[in-house]
Design a protein around this nucleic acid. Structure first.
Lengths: 343, 343
DNA sequence: TCCCCTGTTGACAACGTTGTCCAGGGCCTA
DNA sequence: TAGGCCCTGGACAACGTTGTCAACAGGGGA
């Protein structure tokens, strides 16, 4: 098999280059470059000839070469947990919107909550020389990013703090939100309150748990650890029995605090199957939660994304202040389920 | 000061290049390249020295240069309507998963249902030389893609057919699904059935409307166009009064068919405010719809994304068959709202 | 008439990587 | 011991673009 032939066939089909355009228009290479980039110093007549050649050949500038030459890719990377999670859709969209306003494209990837996969993704993005990175950390050690950050890749961590690395962060007030939610339940007469959360490895999980404990302590309630606190994953196959266990037995909990949107959904399902009403407050808002009367601690995913992206581009525009840490407030939205009295 | 160092400082921060690594390891440039790409023909000892230099300098291969040289970017583009829409999250995630299995990254953008923005995005992606494109069309004329497709950019259109261009398509059976949903309502005794949809410019909208008409015609029902059919946007500010109008008056509709998930959500809200029960079937499934008892025509967003991505990579792997058109089936999920009798 | 100035244009190098090809050294075989 | 072969390593060009700089033409002023 002839290698050269296969090779050329495997390239960009037969993409015309500026050289081809130049030849066809009968001008120099650089003149084409000028036209393509709307640089001044080209007579209207020449410009027209070049433009005709461009249209005729279907030429499109090769941004890879441009990037190589200029050093900026006009693209940013976003690494999150799961694009299919309704919390991350709006967040991602908000980031995209800001990026678009700055003429940048968005490359994104899901870490699936796996630190190794996070690192793999982030480094792949760095190899592409994205100008900046927005990372929702899966792991808790980001020293692998040090050379990148030192080399000038603007980086913003979102939703959870970075591990062992200095960088901007945009977080939600997980502690305060959970504390408020649990206090809300206590204010409605509950004392036996269960907490169901994701893996304790995740920062927001421990923060929310801390908020739960704080609210309980404020009310002088001693938490029955074994019976009232359940951490693990958001898989319904785990959450469901955990919730059922809390609601069973001689002294069941009368209220539940659900650590995130995935957990809330499963909790709602379990509760719906029972006769006895159970109070519930969930972290994160959910679509149609208003119709189901679910009280939630809402965090504005779009605002989080927008804020993070704005920070990022401020860095890219040269801001050199020390790493900042923004904490966005949460909001309690009472809709009924959090205002039920103890059974 | 060393020339190389000063130079690279001006570019990507101060990114070391293979040349720097080679100098430090005391080997040739190409040897570094071999190590980085795990090519054979390097003694373990040399490899170790190179690897040490790489680690010491924090070197990361510049994929822009690699792409320029190799002609493949190992990235694909996905242009959809709105990443924040719960239908597109899972779709996007499925595409990403397939891309990942093929070692490719995903660049995505939202067209916001604006044909111009779609074109702008697609062409930007082409300039980046993505290997392939998955497009959920906003516009209905894609002739602008002709030179790209001819140049070898694999392209798959999803959810809606392409305009004036030969390419693979992966669609859902909008017509059949809507027809089945409306027939379901008719089977439960309804004859006055309203249809609420998005902009008629969108292919799926007219297809679903066609399904509605077909089901009505099958049952010998004459559609009262003015009163029963409402198209426009998915903005609640428009949908809400439209639904209210259908449910008002001396001869209101007794059932509604909602054209997509956004519309369904608003319809559910309006219905929830009323005393008289109104039957409802919605196109697209919605989270928690099971708890609210909403009957839906479900299309598997993840399956759509996966199928499209698989088609794309088959093309990239050399498949040369003529453009195919896949239509994925929908599924009626009865949950109560679609089985209500006429009031 | 000459010269300078301005405005257009093109030649050329460089960006960082990979493919090609060649050189040298060590080892095996005859 | 000579010849040949394999294995390792390096020099060099090329990918398509942009920045630099110089050339050139035309016009106007002295």
């Amino acid at each position: 098999m002839d290698r050269t032939a296969r090779h050329s066939e495997n390239r960009y089909g037969n993409r015309p280059t500026m050289k081809d355009v130049a030849a066809r228009a009968g001008v120099g290479l650089k003149t084409v470059s000028r036209v393509v980039n709307s640089e001044p110093g080209v007579t209207p007549d020449t410009e027209r000839r070049v433009q005709e050649a461009i249209d005729a050949l279907g030429f499109r500038r090769n941004d890879s070469a441009r990037v190589l030459r200029k050093g900026r890719t006009a693209s940013i990377g976003l690494v999150l947990e799961d694009l299919a999670d309704p919390f991350y859709g709006p967040l991602s969209r908000a980031v995209e919107e800001v990026a678009r306003a700055h003429g940048a494209l968005l490359i994104n990837g899901s870490s699936a909550e796996d630190p190794e996969r996070e690192q793999e993704l982030v480094l792949a993005l760095c190899a592409r020389r994205v100008d900046g990175l927005i990372v929702i950390p899966a792991g808790d050690d980001h020293r692998y990013l040090e050379p990148e950050i030192k080399a000038g890749v603007a980086t913003v961590f979102v939703d959870r703090p970075a591990g062992h690395v200095e960088a901007d962060m945009v977080l939600s007030d997980s502690f305060g939100g959970a504390r408020e939610g649990v206090a809300h339940l206590i204010a409605h007469g509950h004392r036996r309150i269960g907490f169901i959360g994701d893996q304790p490895r995740i920062h927001t999980v421990t923060e929310r748990l801390r908020g739960y404990r704080a609210a309980m302590a404020d009310a002088g309630i001693t938490v029955e650890e074994e019976a009232w606190v359940s951490l693990g994953s958001t898989d319904p196959a785990r959450v469901r029995p955990a919730v059922e266990a809390m609601l069973a037995g001689p002294e069941p909990v009368t209220a539940l605090f659900a650590g995130n949107n995935r957990v809330t959904v499963t909790a709602v399902r379990v509760i719906a199957e029972r006769e006895r009403p159970v109070a519930l407050v969930g972290f994160d808002d959910i679509e149609l939660a208003d119709l189901l009367g679910i009280t939630v601690i809402s965090q504005d995913a779009a605002a989080v994304g927008r804020t993070a992206a704005e920070h990022l581009f401020r860095r890219l525009d040269g801001a050199a202040h020390p790493p900042s840490r923004v904490e966005l407030p949460t909001r309690l939205i009472p809709r009924g389920s959090g205002e039920l009295p103890p059974a």
